[in-house]
Design a binder for these strands. Structure first.
Lengths: 136, 136
DNA sequence: GTATTTGACTTGATAAATGAAAGGATTTGA
DNA sequence: TCAAATCCTTTCATTTATCAAGTCAAATAC
C-alpha cells in the first residue's frame, strides 16, 4: 500500500510540513507535481490526518506539563468526562486506557496554583495519581 | 508579548499549518504579508517550534498505542536510556517524570508479538507498568 | 510642542509555486 | 497483443510568496 517514497514523504512532512511540494519532490526524487499528487493521495486515504504546528507551551506561559492517571470508584464516568470538557484550556489529551487506571489525562498548567485548583475540582469526581514531566 | 492576533494565528496554524499566508491573513484580518511577518516573528522568538503532520498510525500498521511507566531500582539510568535509543521505531515520547515512576514512555506497536518482545527486552533493564490506549 | 524614531501594516513589482491538461513510459489483465 | 490503468514528466496559466518601499500612528526625545 505505501512504498518507500511515501514513507519518505511522511518523514519529510513530519520534520517540516510547510515545505514546498517542489522541495519535497527533490528530497524523494520526484517532481513537485508528482510529490503533490502523492500527498493528495495520502490525505484522501486518511494516512495524513492533518497539518499542525509545535507550539512552545513554556513561551505561552504554561510551565507545567503533567500526566494524571484517573482512578474511578464509580462505574459511571460521565461526571468526570463532563468535567474534562469544561477544562479544555488545560487538557492536551484524554486517553481511555487499560491497566493501572481508567484514563490518562495529559495536561498543561501555567502555575502550581491553577494545577492545585484543577486537582481539587477533579477530586470531586475521581481519584488520581499525578506525574509531572521533568524532561522530554 | 503575544496579542489576540498572534493567538489567532497559532490557533489557525494548529488546525492547518499548510494554509497559505493569504488565507491566514484573511482569518485574522491582515494582509498575507502582515500575517507572514507575524509568523516569522513567532518562529524567531521560538513560540512556533516547527511544522508537522498528524499521521494515522493505524493505517501505517501500528494498532497498539501504549504508555509504559518505567520503574528503576538502580540509580544508574544509562542502560535504560541506551536501550530506548535502539528502539526508536516504537517510541513516540520518553518523558522523565516525578511521581509514580522515573520515566513515562509513549509507544506504538504493530502487533502484540512485537510489544511482548519489546517488554521482554525492556525488562532486562527496568521494571514497568503497562497501560494500553483504548480510545482518545 | 515639534521632530525623530520605532513598530506594524499596506502597496506594488518580481520571483516562485501551484494546478490543470496533455503526453509518455511501464505494468496489468483480458 | 492490445487496451486500460497507473505513475510520472512537461508545459503553461494562475495563484502565492517575497522583497523593497512607502504610509501611518504611537512613543520618545529634544
Amino acid at each position: 500500500m505505501l512504498d518507500n517514497t511515501d514513507m519518505g514523504i511522511l518523514h519529510e512532512l513530519s520534520k517540516n510540513s510547510r515545505i514546498t511540494m517542489k522541495e519535497l519532490g527533490e528530497k524523494v526524487h520526484l517532481t513537485g507535481q508528482a510529490a503533490a499528487s502523492r500527498v493528495a493521495k495520502l490525505e484522501d486515504n486518511g494516512v495524513i490526518e492533518g497539518y499542525s504546528i509545535k507550539v512552545n507551551q513554556v513561551k505561552l506561559g504554561c510551565f507545567i506539563h503533567a500526566f494524571i492517571t484517573i482512578i474511578t470508584q464509580s462505574t459511571y464516568h460521565q461526571p468526570y468526562l463532563s468535567f474534562v470538557k469544561t477544562q479544555e484550556q488545560y487538557i492536551i489529551n484524554n486517553y481511555k486506557i487499560s491497566g493501572d487506571g481508567c484514563y490518562l489525562l495529559e495536561c498543561k498548567f501555567p502555575s502550581n496554583e491553577l494545577l492545585n485548583q484543577f486537582l481539587e475540582d477533579l477530586n470531586e469526581h475521581v481519584n488520581y495519581k499525578l506525574s509531572i514531566v521533568i524532561n522530554k
